[in-house]
Amino acid sequence: MQDLLDTLEKVNQLALTQDEKASVQAYFERVAQDLPSFAEVDTQNVTPMVYVMPLSNVLREDESSQPFTRDDLQKGAPEAEDGYWEVPRLIE
C-alpha cells in the first residue's frame, strides 16, 4: 500500500504528509471493501457507457476567432514576461 501511494503521489505531482497518507489509505481500504461485489456484477455482454445522453456529431465549422488578448490571459500568471509564461529552465 505504501508503495502504491508513493507511486500515485509522484504521478499526481503531490507530496502528502503522514496524516494525509493515513486518510488516503483509509479511504482506499473502505472503497476496496465494496469491490468484491462490484467485481461480481456480470458485465460481459454490456458495452461501456461513457455518455449518459445519446448525442453524436457535435461539430463546429472551421472558423477562427481570437476574442481574448494575451495580456488578459496572463493577468493572473504567477510568472510571465514578454508574452511568455515562464518556468524554471527545463532539462531534457
Binding site: 481570437q66 476574442p67 481574448f68 494575451r70 490571459l73 496572463q74 514578454d82 508574452g83 511568455y84 509564461w85
Partner: peptide
C-alpha cells in the same frame, strides 16, 4: 504568430 497570440482560456 507572435508568442501566445493564438490562445484562449
Amino acid at each position: 504568430a507572435e508568442q501566445n497570440e493564438h490562445v484562449c482560456p
